[in-house]
Simulated assay, not measured.
Amino acid sequence: MSLLFALPETPSVPITGEEARFPVRRIFCVGRNYEAHARELGNKVDREAPIWFTKAPAALCHSGETIPYPPGTANCHYEMELVAAIGAPAFRVSPEEAMDVVLGYACGLDMTRRDLQNAAKDRGYPWDTGKDFENAAVIAPITRAAAFGPIAEQRITLSQNGAVKQDASLAEMTWPLPELIADLSRMYHLAPGDLIYTGTPAGVGAIAAGDLLEGAVEGLEPVRLTISAAE
């Protein structure tokens, strides 16, 4: 079989201390997973089921990069998140089994074209243009789960040009990671290469050209992103 043209190589993420990289198959994201963040945007927390959306692997962006201000928006926001990297198959697993499939964790930024997202929400449309775009899934190197330890009350923070904007505990997640994985595995055959962005705490805000974003989760390599002028 011949192809009309070649596609880019499979996106991948470094693993701390290892030569091999983590190839990215799919990117799942959960919305409104911190109650204070849901409230700051005027949303109610849905405690019946997590709210899922996806980003294409082409949206992946590595920590340390400089990216242009995203096109098509006048109100792009940062959202600091813990990212879980799946390293084993999972289908219809229980919360008690879920953590066995986690290879590791990383700091990530779920960049959001808030004006486009809000317009879509007002019309009852999908969030795709607000969430899935180039450089919208920023990620730092992955730390193996055994080196990170259990998710507990680690701080998750983000600073913009040195000023702290987000500061919370991972314990504040409405849906803890075992429940997220179990829920997602009811609808998908999860597999090695899948990433799960687990939601953002309160304090999200707009970015501008010249900004430096620095995000951290205790025990993980930080994520950094610089914003340059729009193309």
Score class of each variant (00 low, 15 high):
residue 1 M to H: 15
residue 2 S to M: 14
residue 3 L to W: 15
residue 3 L to P: 13
residue 4 L to G: 13
residue 6 A to V: 13
residue 7 L to W: 13
residue 7 L to Q: 15
residue 9 E to I: 06
residue 10 T to E: 03
residue 16 T to G: 05
residue 16 T to V: 10
residue 17 G to W: 01
residue 18 E to A: 13
residue 21 R to P: 15
residue 22 F to S: 11
residue 23 P to F: 01
residue 25 R to C: 09
residue 27 I to D: 07
residue 32 R to D: 10
residue 32 R to V: 09
residue 35 E to C: 04
residue 36 A to M: 02
residue 36 A to N: 03
residue 36 A to V: 01
residue 41 L to T: 10
residue 43 N to S: 14
residue 47 R to N: 03
residue 53 F to G: 09
residue 53 F to L: 12
residue 54 T to K: 14
residue 55 K to F: 12
residue 61 C to S: 14
residue 65 E to F: 01
residue 66 T to F: 13
residue 67 I to K: 10
residue 69 Y to R: 10
residue 70 P to A: 00
residue 70 P to Y: 01
residue 71 P to Y: 14
residue 72 G to L: 07
residue 76 C to P: 00
residue 77 H to E: 11
residue 80 M to S: 05
residue 82 L to S: 04
residue 83 V to H: 03
residue 83 V to Q: 06
residue 85 A to K: 03
residue 86 I to N: 05
residue 89 P to G: 12
residue 90 A to D: 00
residue 91 F to Y: 06
residue 92 R to H: 13
residue 94 S to E: 07
residue 95 P to W: 01
residue 98 A to L: 12
residue 101 V to P: 00
residue 102 V to F: 01
residue 103 L to I: 04
residue 104 G to F: 03
residue 106 A to N: 04
residue 110 D to R: 05
residue 110 D to F: 06
residue 116 L to G: 07
residue 117 Q to F: 11
residue 123 R to T: 11
residue 123 R to Q: 15
residue 123 R to A: 15
residue 125 Y to K: 08
residue 130 G to Y: 14
residue 131 K to G: 10
residue 134 E to A: 13
residue 134 E to N: 07
residue 143 T to E: 10
residue 144 R to I: 05
residue 144 R to D: 00
residue 146 A to L: 12
residue 147 A to G: 15
residue 148 F to P: 06
residue 153 E to T: 15
residue 155 R to Q: 14
residue 155 R to N: 15
residue 157 T to E: 06
residue 159 S to M: 03
residue 162 G to W: 11
residue 162 G to M: 05
residue 162 G to L: 02
residue 165 K to Q: 03
residue 166 Q to Y: 00
residue 166 Q to W: 00
residue 166 Q to L: 04
residue 174 T to V: 09
residue 175 W to Y: 12
residue 181 I to T: 03
residue 182 A to Q: 14
residue 188 Y to A: 12
residue 190 L to S: 07
residue 190 L to E: 04
residue 199 G to N: 07
residue 203 G to E: 00
residue 205 G to W: 00
residue 205 G to M: 01
residue 205 G to A: 01
residue 208 A to H: 10
residue 211 D to T: 05
residue 212 L to K: 13
residue 213 L to E: 04
residue 214 E to C: 06
residue 214 E to D: 12
residue 215 G to W: 02
residue 217 V to E: 04
residue 219 G to R: 07
residue 220 L to V: 07
residue 221 E to A: 14
residue 222 P to A: 00
residue 223 V to T: 09
residue 224 R to V: 09
residue 229 A to G: 09
residue 230 A to S: 13
